[in-house]
Amino acid sequence: MVKEYNIVITGVGGQGILTAANLLGWAALHAGYKVRVGEVHGMSQRFGSVIAYVRFGEDVYGAMVPEGKADVILAFEPVEALRYINYLKEGGLVIANSNPIPPVQVSMGLATYPGMEEIKKIIEEDFKGKLITLDAEKLALEAGNVITTNVVLIGALTQTPGFPLSAEHVKEVIRLSVPKKAVDVNMKAFELGVKAAKELLGL
């Protein structure tokens, strides 16, 4: 049994981040771990930048992952991976959806959106992490519904080297959690995420 495993999930309010965190929390609970999931509700959910934490293991206490302690960051949007990169431990993995959602300030010309190369460079060179990106919306559409984007990303997450929960176990929790008519599309989305991450990680 792992002592403590730390996942940070980031993205834009409305992308299904809290649902993903809750699903992972239940998967860890069913695997017998102590669990903490940290979220922020209210105003921050309105299309703002969002961070959620999932922690599990034999010994977990607070709901927030401290800076420098995340084993993996799952980012639903590329710049949101960079925004919370200070949470990643050295040698940690960042799995990011490659679809940018430009903030209103960028459209107004008040700020600029950094390039993917620049994001990758900071993550890998400055923060000693590894970045993989996948077009999760495209895979979700391929599975049958764009709403399964978060399940694609969860599928990818389970391929993180050293991830303590098996992909089959997480998949089963999702199967039991989604409405019956949505099971097939979610299972397909999960598998597409797994496959994409395997290729990207050379597994």
Binding site: S49, Q105, A111, I122
Partner: peptide, 14 residues
């Protein structure tokens, strides 16, 4: 370095 280049994303009206 990150603060300098990450665009702000405050919550907004839906």
């Amino acid at each position: 370095k990150v603060s300098a280049i990450v665009p702000p994303r405050p919550p907004s009206l839906c």
